[in-house]
Design a protein around this nucleic acid. Structure first.
Length: 475
RNA sequence: GGCCCCAUCGUCUAGAGGCCUAGGACACCACCCUCUCAAGGUGGAGACACGGGUUCGAAUCCCGUUGGGGCUACCA
């Protein structure tokens, strides 16, 4: 029987042993969606029973990443390191019921005995030795020799494990510290968890959890849901060491949390119709654990980028300007506070918004306005000016005409069209030298609006400088 | 090796026996739009791993093979 009826209580239980990656974020999201949809509770629990590898700074990173994603918790964060008494008590109960036994086997001994064993794992050597618990002795769970343990999983159906294939697993280390499988079950029971939603990699340990849950008389088993793993381009499970997929990295690159959330939600789940852009409210409303896919999904940054662009363009101008602020200072900005001016930025912002995939791309696009000294892309200069014999007359004409022309985008465009005509070029070809001379790049924001904001003096000064530069090179 | 999971375009997926000549999206290609770059529009190429069943009929159900993945710690 599984827990049913009533609002669900779910938990997200990361271990603070490294940076928070997108796989964990997806798991947290799915848990959160289940809780919010059914009016349940989302419990946050830090699984730091491994004192060697756990570090408080990783916990802080997890908390901040969750907050950034808009995933809030109703209880916690609990820390397993502070709940030691509960695990000790559970172990005492299990030992008293003769479900646990002490073991002093060393790994090497077990392996030596298992040399010819076709089904390796702990061989039960200490099962009936009657060793007293104590320092240097681990406590193992006595797994039934026969029968099967079934894991009822909403996404995978029933998964059966023959008890004969489950070894007598350690529950308390020889140091006396509890092992995660015990801590998890004790906590899930104590916290009234109704749904255990986690990554597929935990599926093999789930029968052990079920055995412990029953041994501890935890009542109705939780509903299990093992989500497909997220994989890299080589189809391997995303790993903190191998793959650069920290949520924090995406945040720093200028991804929007709502875009990340939307993308993550679609990794292993899709709404009934073909919609892909879904608001948080829609996600909460439509997400169903039963509809989660079973096969691994590749975390595709290209697709994430697409979603991010969509979300950025959907921002209204004022919000875009507001959200860009953190990305207009170092290390994104190549200028100093003294040379930055919010007014020109805000005037070009609507044009910037249409052209960036991440907020991290904003600063480079407007750097021509603020960076001192002005930075020139030498390759673009060579192509559009130095190696183009027609560039000089165009620049000279622009330099002259711009001295008196009305200074607005429309007039500037008209002037350049006239210059292009007399140079026998189309506007697309004629604008290149001016663009490179004034903006330092062959690509970027629309030229005329940019010139208008740049200002007559600076525009002409840059054209003059380009002329001088090309003159020097040709001498 | 053992246990377990998975298998639709390169990628994320729709598809729950006839609606499939397999739909959408990203990426890719072409064209249109266009002051560059984007964005946008139109079109194109691109998949049911294989073999057996079951059935009047299978991408959908069953079995097998192959392939991929996870776990196999006194990590989580």
């Amino acid at each position: 029987m599984t827990a049913a009826g009533g609002p669900p209580r779910v938990r997200f239980a990361p271990s603070p042993t490294g940076y928070f990656h997108v796989g964990g974020a997806r798991t947290a999201l799915y848990n959160w969606l289940v809780a919010r949809r059914l009016g349940g509770a989302f419990v946050l629990r830090i699984e730091d029973t491994d004192r060697e590898r756990s570090d408080e700074s990783w916990t802080e990173g997890i908390l901040s990443a969750l907050s950034w994603l808009g995933i809030d918790w109703d209880e916690g964060p609990y820390r397993q390191s502070e709940r030691r008494d509960l695990y000790d008590e559970a172990a005492r109960r299990l030992y008293a019921a003769r479900l646990l036994y002490a073991c002093d086997c060393q790994r090497a001994d077990v392996e030596a005995r298992n040399k010819d064993n076709p089904t390796p794992g702990y061989d039960g050597f200490c099962r009936d030795r009657g060793l007293e618990p104590g320092p240097g002795r681990a406590l193992r769970f006595r797994v039934p020799d026969e029968g099967v343990t079934v894991v009822h999983d909403v996404v995978r159906g029933d998964v059966e494990f023959a008890n004969s294939t489950i070894e007598d697993f350690v529950v308390i280390k020889s140091s006396g510290d509890p092992l995660f499988v015990l801590a998890v079950v004790v906590d899930d029971i104590a916290m009234g968890i109704t749904h255990v939603i986690r990554a597929e990699e935990h599926l093999p340990t789930t029968p052990k959890a079920v055995l412990l849950w029953e041994a501890l008389e935890g009542g109705a088993l939780p509903v299990y849901a093992h989500l497909p793993v997220l994989v890299n381009e080589k189809r391997q499970k995303l790993s903190k060491r191998r793959d650069r997929v920290a949520v924090e990295d995406y945040r720093m690159l200028g991804y929007l949390p709502e875009a990340m959330r939307n993308y993550l939600a679609l990794l292993g789940w899709a709404p009934a119709d073909g919609r892909e852009v879904l608001s948080l409210a829609e996600l909460v409303d439509e997400f169903r654990l039963e509809d989660v896919n079973v096969s691994p999904a590749f975390f595709d940054e290209k697709r994430l980028l697409h979603f991010n662009g969509l979300y950025i363009r959907a921002l209204d101008d004022a919000e875009f300007i507001d959200r860009s602020q953190p990305f207009l200072v170092a290390p994104y900005a190549t200028w100093t506070d003294e040379t930055f001016d919010p007014v020109p930025f805000e005037r070009l912002a609507p044009l910037v918004k249409e052209r960036v995939g991440t907020l991290g791309e904003v600063a480079p696009m407007v750097a021509f306005l603020f960076a001192e000294p002005f930075v020139m892309d030498e390759a673009a200069f060579a192509k559009a000016i130095a190696n183009d014999p027609g560039a000089r007359p165009i620049l000279e004409a622009a330099y002259d005409v711009f001295s008196a022309s009305p200074w607005d985008a429309e007039s500037l465009k008209a002037e350049l069209i006239a210059i292009a005509e007399s140079a026998g070029r189309k506007l697309a070809k004629a604008q290149a030298p001016i663009r490179v001379a004034t903006m330092g790049s062959a690509v970027g924001l629309p030229l005329f609006e940019s010139l208008q904001v740049l200002g007559r003096e600076r525009a002409r000064a840059r054209i003059a400088a380009a002329l001088e530069h090309v003159g020097a090179e040709q001498d």
